[in-house]
Design a protein around this nucleic acid. Structure first.
Length: 403
RNA sequence: GGGUCGGUGCCCGAGUGGUUAAUGGGGGCGGACUGUAAAUCCGCUGGCUCUGCCUACGUUGGUUCAAAUCCAACCCGGCCCA
């Protein structure tokens, strides 16, 4: 096998490919059916998810067919993969709503240049729901699936192994998940399945099931789990270290340009197509280039450049400066009852999570109004006119203009 | 089903009748420093338009002037046995 024959769009950022020697041949074949499953349990897609979609898009652009599987069946049962707390079962309506939100965020019906997937070119995308084939699986079939795996195999799976080791509960139906996901590959005759490295077991299960049902086993292409803004834990909404795909340019840029050095290269590799060798060596410059490019990919060049300029101005302490303040997100004073004490104001307007939190922030010296530090949480504002147009700053990176 | 141990704030984990909104660590947030970073140091870390008042230690009920701490039932989990 000559490595040179594997294109960069395919190999960039890949953590694992199996079976490794099958890729070259596979790529020469007719359009591959490339599977990616999503779980419509939440409603916001962040950059961590997006690396998989970016790879899927690369396949589309190379002429292959993306099969986006919405795990509506799985979601309705409640995916137990989290820790202890049993997931709330989602209603059909909720699943449907989440699915639509997902598709919108992926760019359905939007500017094709900024959208994550290619929705328009015929033959490049199939959106399927796994309820289509899972709803009618009968018990004999389910037993047939269960018979294909053993408790030993399941317990070898890292997630289960850890939980078993730690004495955390594992419910039997959780064993069904890898099998059902694998069965999706059978149902849609996948040639390749994309996933995070945490999906290795499930993707491999897909291969086993396909073989069992007389199909050619799919390839597995795994991408790393993207670290979150803290640079340590995976990017995840519950950890609060995400950048959402639909975030405004300024907050997207601001968050990205302060990401820990340790993950900048990974972000560059996985979230952009930039030529890493062509970038400046200075770590700060690379960080900025990364933030700018990711923002550009979602919002276009003008908005990205403006975000970069605004971010620089704001942090330079120019919060009251008219030019910089133009891009500051606005917040309405409509819900505030005057006269309003400072701590109440901050929570009423949603900048702080609670009035107690607001009180702490003010006492902690982290709140400024038009560049001037607020020191008394009980300071009273008599009317909204006193505040309109002023810029409130919380910490180093959160700015809001009152309207 | 039986035995046994256990369920504390975002997480881990102290506390076994009374200054306990509850020790400590992690995480998070804010401040200093800096490259808007890392490391380090300091402060904060239930809610409430808050000089005070509410909720909180699996759930419910009980004992007591007073309970996370004692009692009962129930729910949930680990381990061992079946």
């Amino acid at each position: 096998m000559t490595v040179a024959s594997i294109p960069n769009w395919f190999s960039r950022g890949v953590a694992d490919l199996f079976p490794a020697d099958a890729a070259e041949t596979a790529l020469q074949n007719k359009p591959l059916r490339v599977k990616l499953g999503i779980d419509p349990t939440g409603s916001t897609i962040h950059l961590g998810h997006s690396i998989l979609f970016r790879k899927l898009r690369a396949f589309q652009d190379a002429g292959h067919t993306a099969i986006l599987i919405i795990g509506d069946f799985t979601a309705r049962i409640g995916d137990p993969s989290g820790k202890s707390a049993t997931r709330v079962q989602l209603s059909i309506e909720e699943v449907e709503e989440n699915s639509n939100t997902y598709l919108q965020q992926l760019g359905q019906g939007q500017d094709p240049n900024l959208s994550l997937l290619d929705f328009d070119t015929p033959g490049r995308l199939e959106v399927r729901r796994n309820s289509e084939w899972l709803t009618d699986l009968n018990l004999p079939k389910v037993i047939e699936l269960l018979a294909l795996s053993t408790v030993g195999q399941m317990l070898a799976k890292e997630e289960f192994a850890n939980r078993y080791e730690n004495g955390t509960a594992i419910s039997l139906h959780e064993f069904l998940y890898p099998l059902l996901q694998g069965y999706d590959s059978v149902a849609i005759k996948a040639d390749l399945e994309l996933g995070g490295t945490d999906q290795k077991f499930n993707v491999a299960m897909g291969r086993d099931l396909q073989r069992h049902f007389g199909l050619k086993p799919q390839l597995g292409l795994l991408l790393p789990i993207l670290p979150g803004l803290d640079g340590v834990q995976k990017m995840s909404k519950s950890l609060g270290n995400t950048v959402g795909l639909t975030e405004d340019p300024l907050s997207m840029y601001s968050k990205l340009e302060k990401v820990p050095d340790a993950v900048v290269e990974e972000y560059l590799t996985l979230l952009t197509n930039l030529d890493l060798a062509a970038l400046p060596n200075n770590p700060r410059e690379r960080q900025k280039a990364m933030a700018l490019e990711i923002t550009r990919l979602r919002h276009g060049p003008e908005a990205a450049a403006a975000a970069q300029a605004d971010a620089a101005n704001l942090v330079a302490g120019a919060a009251g400066n008219g030019a910089a303040a133009a891009e500051v997100p606005e917040v309405s004073l409509g819900a505030v009852n005057f006269p309003a004490k400072a701590f109440y104001l901050l929570s009423a307007v949603g900048i702080c999570s609670s009035s107690s939190d607001a009180r702490r922030q003010i006492i902690g010296g982290g709140v400024k109004l038009d560049g001037e530090k607020l020191s008394d949480p009980n300071q009273e504002f008599q009317s909204s006119t006193e505040l309109e147009g002023k810029v409130l700053q919380l910490g180093k990176k959160i700015f809001r203009r009152f309207v």
